[in-house]
């Protein structure tokens, strides 16, 4: 009951946060010089003031700031994010087309990084001077210092050009025909390099943190108690120690959600992954304000939902978080 209530509170906060993000996004876009009228006139090879005014009046850009903000917010409430002048498509539709690709990339990278990171952390914590431990140290150094686009390009050269193991770009091969599994395997093959690229930074972070917390937990009094109970090594490490060392890692993973999404923009650009990142990149070049705002809105939504999920996950791992007295 108390858990439900505190969860509801979290959701209310999330909604307020989302509204704040909307206002801030809109204000910032408004403050930036240049608008869609400039872009359209540019693509027409120049236009006089009369035509510019006409375009601005058509799109409501001549209205005062607060009126524009008000009508924007009203539309967002109805899930209408406006119309992309550049793509000639409603923004919502545009984004929903691209969102699954990004979510697939982001969640796969995040979950794999978490999973492998924790396993590496545990293995290296149990043998602080073993091979796995040194591997984690090197991996962390590399993953943390190498820029994403550089890693991505290196992987492309290595595993797509020299050794032709994985496709170079895109998410699926349009020439392939077949059932569900054929397409599944096709997408999975396309997914490997982008996920490795994006996941490497986070794998580095998580494995380091998991290693540190695990070492601390393994030296704790309750682990000694577990040993004194005569439990097997496996139970001591994977039941008693692991669950305690998870919460810092999960907290960090939640905080990293925003970084994962901004990282996705770069990775998508390198691998021509048809997701939100590529869309954001193209819209910024085209000054396609509604699309940019829409993407910002959706990434804020993903980050907020990610944090909410983190919160719920933490409750499962650690009973001291929220809820019970």
């Amino acid at each position: 009951m108390a858990t439900l209530q505190s969860l509801l509170t979290r959701i209310v906060y999330a909604v307020i946060l989302l509204v704040a993000v909307l206002v801030l996004n809109f204000s910032m876009m408004h403050l930036a010089p240049g608008d869609v009228a400039d872009t359209i006139s540019q693509s027409m090879g120049g236009a006089d003031q009369e035509i510019l005014d006409q375009i601005r009046a058509d799109y409501g850009l001549d209205q005062p700031f607060l009126v524009q903000l008000g009508s924007y917010m009203g539309k967002v409430l109805r899930f209408d994010l406006g119309y992309s002048f550049f793509y000639n498509t409603p923004v919502t539709q545009l984004i929903l087309q691209r969102l699954p690709a990004t979510l697939l990339l982001v969640f796969t990278a995040q979950i794999l990084a978490l999973f492998i990171g924790v396993i590496l952390g545990v293995i290296s914590a149990r043998k602080p001077n073993g091979i796995a431990s040194h591997f984690v140290t090197i991996l962390a150094l590399f993953g943390y210092s190498a820029p994403v686009f550089w890693t991505g390009i290196l992987l492309l050269i290595g595993f797509s050009l020299n050794i032709q193991l994985f496709p170079v770009a895109g998410m699926r091969d349009v020439t392939i025909e077949g059932g569900f599994w054929v397409h599944f395997v096709d997408i999975a093959r396309h997914l490997v390099l982008p996920v490795v690229t994006l996941g490497s930074i986070f794998l580095a972070l998580y494995s380091r943190l998991a290693r540190a917390t695990m070492m601390e937990v393994l030296g704790s009094d309750y682990v000694r108690t577990a040993k004194a109970k005569g439990l097997s090594e496996r139970e001591v490490v994977y039941k008693h120690a692991l669950k305690n060392s998870l919460s810092p890692v999960i907290t960090l993973a939640g905080l990293q959600f925003s970084a994962v999404i901004s990282g996705a923009v770069l990775v998508e650009a390198v691998f021509s992954w048809p997701g939100l990142g590529t869309l954001a990149f193209q819209s910024i070049i085209a000054r396609d304000t509604p699309t940019i705002l829409g993407i910002l809105f959706f990434s804020a939504l993903v980050v907020i939902i990610g944090n909410l999920l983190t919160d719920i996950a933490l409750r499962f791992v650690d009973p001291r978080v929220g809820g019970k007295r």
Binding site: Y222, K229, L231, K243, V317
Partner: peptide, 20 residues
């Protein structure tokens, strides 16, 4: 251990696992 010879420790505050 824990069956024929068992042990209790000095620190009751930290000797129990907080998440079970």
């Amino acid at each position: 251990r824990g069956n024929e010879i068992s042990m209790i420790f000095q620190e009751p505050m930290t000797s129990l696992n907080p998440v079970y």
